[in-house]
């Protein structure tokens, strides 16, 4: 019996120390990044939360007021997380964070651009969604447009106007093109679950004064296409 007790105690000690050891050396990873206003590109100081796959908050840190930087540690490798920011002046936005499996400490990076929650905010869609002179969405554009679907789903009271500018100032060749483009974007949003009543459209017959066609070849890239925006109309 005494022998059995010793063996049992030894096994228990081994288990406990092993467990302690694994806890002590448990691999964690960190995420760093900067938080910006998506329109002004100024750094923001606000609370950055990380939630796990069950939606449970596991970290909350404040970003630096000087440069918007944040640092979150203690995250489990191989985990799926979400960075969430709830700030009254900004749209609610969630940013998925999938961390690779690793057996050593690692740091990952994730910059965050937040869209102001303010009537009149013009959110540029920075991707060429259409071919020149065409109004059907290009293959692959859903990857980017789904960001706006998520944005509108997370902010269900927000209504927007989709504004499309022309490829050239003399757009008499196809005056309906910009209307058709804004309608195509609206249709995509509706098909992905956004109520049509929250979306209006406007096609504009001139080029975007904020991003005019280039005058010369100063650097790589010169093909000009009209820009598209989501303009916040209601909160």
């Amino acid at each position: 019996m005494k022998k059995f007790t010793i063996v049992f105690a030894a096994i228990s000690m081994l288990f406990i120390t092993n467990n302690l050891y694994s806890q002590l050396v448990k691999t964690v990873v960190s995420v760093e990044g900067e938080v910006y206003d998506a329109i002004t590109h100024k750094p923001l100081s606000l609370y950055v939360e990380v939630v796990n796959a069950d939606g449970k908050r596991i970290q909350k840190v404040q970003s630096n007021s000087q440069d918007g930087s944040y640092f979150i540690t203690g995250l489990t490798p191989g985990g799926n997380f979400e960075i969430r920011i709830a700030e009254l002046d900004y749209m609610k936005q969630y940013f998925p964070l999938s961390l690779p499996n690793t057996d050593k400490y690692m740091e990952y990076s994730k910059d965050i651009n937040l869209i102001p929650k303010k009537v009149g905010t013009k959110i540029l869609i920075p991707i060429k969604l259409f071919e020149s002179g065409k109004s059907n969405l290009k293959y692959g554009s859903d990857l980017f447009l789904k960001d706006y679907v998520d944005l509108l789903k997370l902010n269900p009271t927000v209504s927007v106007k989709i504004m499309s500018f022309a490829d050239e100032n003399n757009s008499s060749k196809n005056p309906d093109l910009t209307n058709q483009r804004s309608a195509a974007i609206k249709e995509f949003l509706i098909q992905n679950g956004i109520e049509g009543r929250r979306i209006t459209t406007e096609g504009i017959l001139t080029t975007d004064p904020a991003f005019p066609p280039p005058l010369g070849k100063a650097s790589k890239g010169k093909k000009y296409l009209g820009t598209n925006y989501l303009v916040v109309e209601g909160l």
């Binding site: 760093e32 990044g33 990076s109 910059d111």
Partner: peptide, 11 residues
């Protein structure tokens, strides 16, 4: 970027 996982590892 970590190619295998597609994760951004450093900025």
């Amino acid at each position: 970027w970590d190619v295998a996982s597609g994760t951004e590892v450093k900025t």
